[in-house]
Design a protein around this nucleic acid. Structure first.
Lengths: 345, 345
DNA sequence: ACTAAAATTGCAAACGATTGCAATTGCGCG
DNA sequence: CGCGCAATTGCAATCGTTTGCAATTTTAGT
């Protein structure tokens, strides 16, 4: 009895770090322990329960690195956020962060872990190859094409398990999930014109293709309706946006009566600048945003905007990625944007 | 020559997946390749350059799993977001997401990857042990104590590399970074009373200790000043918040003239409900929030709120964690909140 | 030219779990 | 009691990299 106690003491004291340790205590082989803990195998019920009990008692967890190495899969999905066209655009960008939140939910539900990587393509030529070839992830989701369209295209041919959030272009090779930005731009411009605007401006950077498509859609409608539209380059970085918008406002004063903001964030800032200048929205100037972030319905006046269904986007990204992991070569998914008419246009 | 070409062709065609493959081509041993690619070792410059060239040519990347297994470290920091006291509180909660963004920036800068895990403690008893013991991360950052204070305490003794965002309590054993919530609560109550409020209400769940501390601070001030204060339980989930606040507003109509919202998100929603009811802020009712999210300065009227310095928080979390990884047993870091007086109180 | 020291490189043992295959045990039944 | 088959378990190779130590080659010094 004393003997047994001693033995137990020794057993508990010695940390059980490996299958082999546990196997020794249980008096079986490491292979059996592995199978028992995996649960799905052909291990005697009693043996398994005994092993499980010991494992629980010692708080044993099999080493994931070894497991992943052996099984050649990681159970991890990489999520990359390229900060290309505007380095100052923080990873903290609300839209991307919200999408990321939903992605985390979706992936967790499917049993995957999420590895987040913020990446500055300008400083790191082959960020995508590195991420993919790192052997740390089973698949990759890229949030936003930024100015990396070509690089992504290059990789897409040789690497199936990748899905990208962004804009879809005719004939592109990588699988993308995203809103129909061009259509969204049309909706915005139509609304502005319908509510009486006679001269439009697009507030935002037109480099990134998502934004370019939004602008293109708006331009198409404007041209058709015989309304002028101009682009006013505006960055997304919180600090600079304010000033830039202020300058733009100064410049277009009286010349423009309808603003299409590339982003709700820009729209909200714009609204604030307008309020400070005592410009009445929507009477003097109409504003339409893009995204429909939660905060957008809370502004005064509530923002009219083009809604992207972020939850559906996340679901789509994960769904397509899992199918690609299973070997299927999936089509892109283009989600329809929806105009949320509130009070700014 | 033909021979050599052939050989080259064969070499390029055959994928170089392992150090051994590369070593064969380079005519050296795997060990040498490993050292060459690591760069830091004592390999002949010529040999290294040759190996690097071949590696580049074939796009070779050493398998991370094998590397991590061998070196017994992962270069990954786990970030866990427990969704305890309110499962519906999405991971998309703005404050946490913003903090996460800054964390990603900080960690990337220090050369670590970030593994995100959303966790529902109610469904998963030992989420923290699992995460820590998974062998997938070198250290853990927990964002928000939620209702998991005790569990975190239990783990803290045996596991050094963990830092938690949350509330600091006298004598606690885990290392925490966070705002002085009690002080923040005091600031809020003082402001409300100073601007004329005679009867206060706290809008938010008082279960999570961060919120409890905010409420406690406010209560202390209220008691000292002889002003009544009551707590009105309010959840954080976007869908429910609106209704709940509406009900509360109905109930306290005329009885309360100062609201301290546990969170800016709650405050903003509250502001909107008040606007819809035609209640004048700050004349009829004063409101103070907590967090100072970017959107908070954009409301109408701009929200008076208690600011948490999120960037500093992220920096602190990473800094302390790295020191703990190096073996140091660091103290907690309590950041001072700052009252941002705007127009709602 | 010869020896000692320094600089490179190769060898082989880890790291810890998984899994095909073989060996063992147990069971039922004639 | 013995045979055959099924249910369990053990063995050992494998995943791909890193690294201590030994072996080899260079370099330098006399």
């Amino acid at each position: 009895m004393a003997d047994e106690d001693d033995q137990n003491g020794a057993e508990s004291a010695a940390k059980v770090r490996t299958l082999a340790d546990l196997a020794r205590i249980a008096g079986v082989s490491a292979g059996t322990v592995s199978r028992a803990l995996a649960g799905n195998s052909l291990v005697n019920k009693k043996t398994r329960e005994k092993i499980e009990a010991i494992a629980r008692e010692h708080g044993f967890r099999p080493n994931q690195m070894a497991s992943k190495l052996r099984r050649q899969k990681t159970g991890v999905i990489g999520v990359a956020i390229p900060l290309g066209h505007d380095v100052r655009q923080q990873i903290s960008d609300t839209f991307f962060m919200t999408l990321l939140g939903y992605l985390a939910d979706e992936l967790t539900e499917k049993g995957y872990d999420l590895m987040l990587r913020r990446v500055i393509p300008a400083q790191d030529e082959d960020w995508l190859d590195r991420f993919i070839g790192s052997g740390m992830v089973d698949g990759v989701i890229v949030i936003g094409q930024s100015d990396q369209f070509e690089r992504i295209e290059d990789v897409a041919d040789g690497y199936l398990p990748m899905v990208v959030w962004g804009n879809h272009q005719e004939g592109q090779r990588h699988c993308v999930v995203g809103s129909d930005n061009r259509l969204g731009g049309k909706l915005a411009a139509e609304r502005l014109i319908a509510s009486g605007a006679k001269s439009l401006a697009f507030l935002g950077d037109t480099q990134p293709i998502e934004f370019a498509a939004r602008y293109a859609g708006a331009k198409e409608v404007a041209a058709k309706m015989g309304v002028p539209i101009r682009a006013l380059p505006t960055h997304l970085s919180p600090e600079r946006t304010g000033e830039e918008i202020a300058e733009h406002l100064q410049e277009i004063k009286g010349k423009v009566d309808g603003i299409f903001a590339a982003t709700d964030t820009i729209a909200v800032t714009c609204l604030k600048e307008l309020r400070e200048r005592g410009i009445d929205v929507p009477r003097q100037l109409k504003v339409v945003g893009f995204d429909d972030l939660p905060l957008s319905s809370q502004t005064a006046p509530p923002l009219t905007t083009v809604r992207q269904d972020i939850a559906a986007g996340a679901k789509g990204l994960v769904d397509l990625l899992l199918r690609r992991l299973a070997g299927e070569d999936t089509e892109s998914l283009v989600l329809p944007p929806r105009l949320m008419v509130r009070e700014t246009a």
